[in-house]
């Protein structure tokens, strides 16, 4: 999964309908990777070409019940043989 993934945080008052919201986002064109029920977050990405990403991002961000859409970041620790990890 080299392409960009997004973390979609569901607004507090919509958390009990996270499953329904995931379906709406899927219908809007989002590829759903994971639905995190305890956290109230949805992980997904754009199944289409990179050029379509920004319009999909806007569609998702403007969907009722979405609090924020953030690009997933990469984290890294030092290699096993490094003194500081």
């Amino acid at each position: 999964m080299a392409e960009q993934q997004w973390v979609i945080t569901v607004a507090e008052e919509h958390r009990d309908r996270i499953g329904e919201l995931a379906q709406e986002l899927e219908a809007a064109g989002l590829r759903i990777d994971r639905v995190l029920n305890s956290l109230g977050q949805i992980i997904g990405g754009s199944p289409g070409p990179a050029s379509a990403e920004s319009s999909l991002h806007s569609r998702i961000a403007s969907t009722a019940g979405v609090a924020s859409v953030d690009a997933a970041q990469t984290f890294r620790i030092g290699p096993p043989d490094s003194g500081v990890q």
Binding site: Q5, V7, D33, R34, L36, N37, S38, L39, Q41, I43, D70, A72, Q73, T74, F75, R76, I77, G78, P79, P80
Partner: peptide, 18 residues
């Protein structure tokens, strides 16, 4: 390799809460 993304980390937090 020591690397991961928000995807795996948030999924891990969600699992810990569950």
């Amino acid at each position: 390799d020591g690397s991961g993304s928000d995807t795996s980390i948030l999924a891990g937090i969600d699992w810990a809460l569950e």
